[in-house]
Design a protein around this nucleic acid. Sequence first.
DNA 1: AGAGATGTAATTTTTCATTTTACATTCACT
DNA 2: AGTGAATGTAAAATGAAAAATTACATCTCT
Lengths: 152, 152
Amino acid sequence: MQLSMKCSVAVHCLIFINEAKGRVKVTSNLLAQSTGCNPVVIRNVFSALKKAGIITVTRGTGGTELCRPPSEITLYMIYQALEPDGISSLIGIHPCDGRACPVAQNIRAVLQKPYQKIEDGVRSAMESVTLESMIEDFHACLGSEETSKEIK
Amino acid sequence: MQLSMKCSVAVHCLIFINEAKGRVKVTSNLLAQSTGCNPVVIRNVFSALKKAGIITVTRGTGGTELCRPPSEITLYMIYQALEPDGISSLIGIHPCDGRACPVAQNIRAVLQKPYQKIEDGVRSAMESVTLESMIEDFHACLGSEETSKEIK
DNA sequence: AGAGATGTAATTTTTCATTTTACATTCACT
DNA sequence: AGTGAATGTAAAATGAAAAATTACATCTCT
């Protein structure tokens, strides 16, 4: 199970929303165009980000905005919003519970500590990345291109 | 893509091999019983661990042994043996290359740094776990059960 | 030669993420 | 009120990757 593409789509959306602020009304169709996903996928991402308090979405007429400064939005918040069972969904253990072998009976317990370490490692890495820093990097990318195109 | 179950199967196998040392000949059929996997799955895991210099497998007559002390075998070595493309196979980016939107054109570059951080976090977490420590934890599990059963 | 293993290619099955369809709901504007 | 353009979600369809299985070649000891 991959650090699902939803996460990269979400970052894409958030950067887009930030860039569009005050200029363009950001709808699920617009972002579907930009990301190459189906509008429903975008709406589901919106829904998750909304529940997590990261964006507001106005019903009926449409439009999306960040509801806190990018410096306060971490990659971990974004990830958690989209994968509620967290990082454990990245990690699998083969099922071998009812078996006579003592290794089979205890493998789950033995792996718990290492997998917890991995989870902690991923979490702290993700917490150290803010949307702000990704936006800065995005601008740096734009700057290094000869033509810095506008979002139309 | 999950931190594939192969990894937990491999740890299972290695603990088993360690426990059986000098007592039982460890065949793919035996470990298939213990893990609940098909013998071919076990053989494939063996094959990967062998290439990585973690175990030796004797052809023809059968049997498997660790070829270095458990303190020198890290979880990262095991993982790497089984997933040659490494941790990047855990992480995905939605494909949106040929699109006009500047966010789409640069999202890959923007995510590279954060994803590298995550990879580093996972790697160092995995490097800090040795087979020895997992074997110790396994023994602790055994000790805490009233009947500490033997591998038969 | 035969029994019991491993080694591996190739196929089938299963599982799961993703996409899509469909429709109810909401809001603004006329 | 009524229409148009959105969002919100459930549910079904699609597709792709993982896992299991089959099959058979190869090896080693007795």
